[in-house]
Write a protein that binds this DNA or RNA. Sequence first.
DNA 1: CACCAAAATTGATCTGGGTCAATTTGCTTT
DNA 2: AAAGCAAATTGACCCAGATCAATTTTGGTG
Lengths: 256, 256
Amino acid sequence: MHPVGALGLMRGRSALGRWIGASVVTIEPNGHLCNDCAVRDLAVCSSLDPAELREFEHLGRRVHFAAGKTVFSEEDMTTSFYNLVDGVLRLYKLLPDGRRQIVGFALPGDFLGMNTSRRHNFSADAIGAVTVCQFAHAPFDRFIEDRPHLLRRINELAVRELSQARDHMVLLGRRSADEKVATFLLGWCRRLSALKGPSGTVPLPMGRQDIADYLGLTIETVSRTFTKLERQGAIEIIHGGISLRDPARVEALAAA
Amino acid sequence: MHPVGALGLMRGRSALGRWIGASVVTIEPNGHLCNDCAVRDLAVCSSLDPAELREFEHLGRRVHFAAGKTVFSEEDMTTSFYNLVDGVLRLYKLLPDGRRQIVGFALPGDFLGMNTSRRHNFSADAIGAVTVCQFAHAPFDRFIEDRPHLLRRINELAVRELSQARDHMVLLGRRSADEKVATFLLGWCRRLSALKGPSGTVPLPMGRQDIADYLGLTIETVSRTFTKLERQGAIEIIHGGISLRDPARVEALAAA
DNA sequence: CACCAAAATTGATCTGGGTCAATTTGCTTT
DNA sequence: AAAGCAAATTGACCCAGATCAATTTTGGTG
């Protein structure tokens, strides 16, 4: 449960304990350098020069979350920004009766926590183990203040997400189950390729229920569509993911 | 054109006609002052002080579009930003086979044209007569350059839209037809109230097909749901809009 | 006003994907 | 390796909303 000395390693910074609330997380013993960061060139930090980066690295704290843990909840007051460094998050909203819509999956380099309402407007769970770089609002805002290039970078990320959100609306509102699944597989595959280079097999760290809630389908329909695609020779279902056997076929389905 | 309320009214002056692309638009004879602008306090301009505003007003020009005209198209290269001043736009994306998803309706004060790809990623049509304030990219970018507060304002609008986009994903992916329609009516009503004060009757300048394409339904289902709500006494269908007879009932449907 | 075209409504029928109900598969634990 | 359990798959059936097909209503025009 409690991985090695979570609470003991918090140094003098007492506020940090409160940010994290009751979830089981590990804060990395400090000494982290942004220069070595895996997402150095992907994330918001890509807009910072070496001098700025050295200052920036004192603002954030690396925090680990175990599989299934909630990083933040919809109804929480926003106190931090998060930079996903490692792992995958599911971002979702719940209706009062429990229906869930996953609004996206976050991958390393994604920046979370922007909002107008002072509240997160969605929740974020770790799928598998996750590392985030957490920034308290106040110091982060102060840091941005006289660095418009960082603000511009943040805006760029927001606008890109907005565009993705609109694409997803088209998928949810106007596409068939087959098209939804094919589009998801291709999109996920492309994101992973951009991140870790192309590969024949595509890992799917999220479960079928997550995929269903992302596509506005039921778990049964997702499962049936997977097997259908496999029978058609378009994909092969392997353990923990799929392999794109006939990418052209999948693309044809997704495009239609 | 919309008997219930004048959402977009034709400017009296029929000024110099000019061809932009294939559509006929009117550019207002110049001399417009931002100070008198209807959306002065709503739009991006709200972040500018009087001196800046005087400079700003030379950057943009007012352009009128007749009902049904296209302001810009999905596949167009982006050359301008637009500030909607008067009227309503439908923002939509098309699939190759003609299926359409309306990703939003723009109202006065909305800012359009942000993107990462140098292309608009959706199209915008005028519903009824429309006035926009158009800004060429280059001078606008130069103007922003040393005005971070304007950039911050733009970011704020983008983040708000992102939040709305996520709400709409929930609607598209997880709500029933009844809930969709009720949620739409309430949301539209609230936006109009914020803009021109509360009112018993809610004008619906967009057609049933637009509503259907916004909600991921067919026109028949929208029509049937309207009549069902009317029979239940929740709303009254009046010419060019509806009247919220039993707001609590509609809210209950939308919340569920 | 009569006429026409587009938009909206209504009805009858069909179907894609949901629901319900078993299996089956694949871990993990002992 | 057997037991236990959650995730995934598969099958049988059902229904909300789509599709198809008329009307009806509205708006514009000569």
